[in-house]
């Protein structure tokens, strides 16, 4: 059995419907109208121990709600979840020992206390021995630079520092599975890299990871599986490599030439590709093609025969481009095979 199993997971909310303005609010006092919104509708998910899964989707797609359902914070309207055989919202305490949760937009640090005290409180909650606690702090210090944060009162931490401390909080008890909801939100490049390095390390150590993010750079090095959700439904569940292979096949070769050529001359040479002229008219071109039909090497060799090549730049679409197209509705992903 998989470590995490969710079957037909659904959550609907009742939302008050008010007319605009004071009048609307007043009217709502006497005439209550509600509409039902489905945040998550029939999600099936199965995660094996040791897997790292990226859970992505546009704003309001139902990502955070799914995380709240999976961690037991929110009770599903219908459907079921099991983590390691436990139903999270029914066995909250037992379940909380096997999961770690980080909400990038919230902190679990006690606002008025030094980071050290928050960690000590968690140590007592999870019943860690003093030795184990020290070992964990040392480990976090190595990757997250935690030591310098320990004496600082939580409200005085910068966002990046706070996130580092929060990661330590979420992972202090060595959970079997960790849910990270936007762990790099609002962070600068340096801290982001640090967090990503930490995620890679976690994965290498065998921790099961479920990661939601808007920054797809977070997932490229860590996750081998991607689940895309939109409108509360899973629209893709499969390997990241497969998504890229299937939907990110386009390559663009940007060329700067030593001599002049026309678009037609190049287009004739590469009938499978699309050729466009660049800003510098007849000395700059972009050749776009499907990597299954043509290779960058063949393009370069072909161009070299008719003109001197000065500069070359090759663009490979990031997973980001694929997902952007999905969000925009330009690309309909076929059902991927679950790895």
């Amino acid at each position: 059995m998989a470590l995490l199993e969710a079957h037909d997971l659904t959550k609907t909310f009742r939302r008050p419907e008010k007319d605009p303005g004071l009048r609307g609010s007043f009217k709502h006092l006497f005439q209550r109208k509600y509409s039902t919104k489905t945040a998550v509708g029939g999600v099936d998910l199965s995660i094996e121990a040791g897997e790292a899964v990226a859970y992505v989707g546009p704003n309001g797609a139902g990502k955070s709600t799914t995380i709240k359902l999976l961690t037991g914070i929110v009770e599903p309207t219908s459907g079921e979840v099991r983590i390691g055989g436990l139903v999270p919202h029914r066995n909250r305490v037992a379940n909380s020992r096997q999961i770690g949760v980080l909400f990038g937009q919230r902190t679990q640090l006690w606002w008025d206390l030094p980071v050290r005290e928050s960690l000590a409180l968690l140590r007592d909650m999870y019943d860690l021995s003093p030795d184990r606690f020290r070992a964990q702090l040392k480990r976090f210090d190595e990757v997250l630079g935690l030591d310098e944060l320990l004496p600082v009162v939580a409200r005085k931490l910068s966002l990046g520092q706070r996130m580092r401390a929060d990661l330590a909080c979420a992972l202090l008890h060595d959970p079997r599975i960790v849910f990270l909801d936007e762990p790099t939100i609002g962070l600068d490049i340096a801290v982001k890299d640090r967090v990503r390095e930490f995620l890679r390390q976690l994965k290498a150590e065998g921790t099961t990871i479920m990661l939601t993010t808007h920054d797809l750079g977070d997932i490229e090095d860590t996750c081998e599986r991607i689940v895309i959700i939109d409108g509360g439904r899973v629209i893709y569940d499969g390997s990241l490599a497969q998504v890229k292979d299937r939907y990110a096949r386009e390559r663009r070769v940007h060329l700067q030439l030593g001599s002049e050529l026309t678009v037609t001359e190049l287009a004739d040479r590469f009938p499978q590709a699309t050729v466009t002229a660049g800003a510098e008219g007849r000395r700059e071109f972009t050749i776009a093609f499907d990597k299954a039909e043509l290779t960058a090497g063949a393009v370069l060799a072909g161009v070299a025969q008719i003109a001197e090549v000065l500069e070359v730049k090759i663009d490979e679409p990031a997973i980001e481009d694929v997902v952007r197209k999905v969000y925009a509705g330009e690309l309909l992903l076929a059902e991927g095979s679950t790895p």
Binding site: R92, V93, S96, V101, L122, M125, Y126
Partner: peptide, 10 residues
Amino acid sequence: QVALDLVKPI
């Protein structure tokens, strides 16, 4: 914040 309390063994 209470959401985070709900995922703690307390």
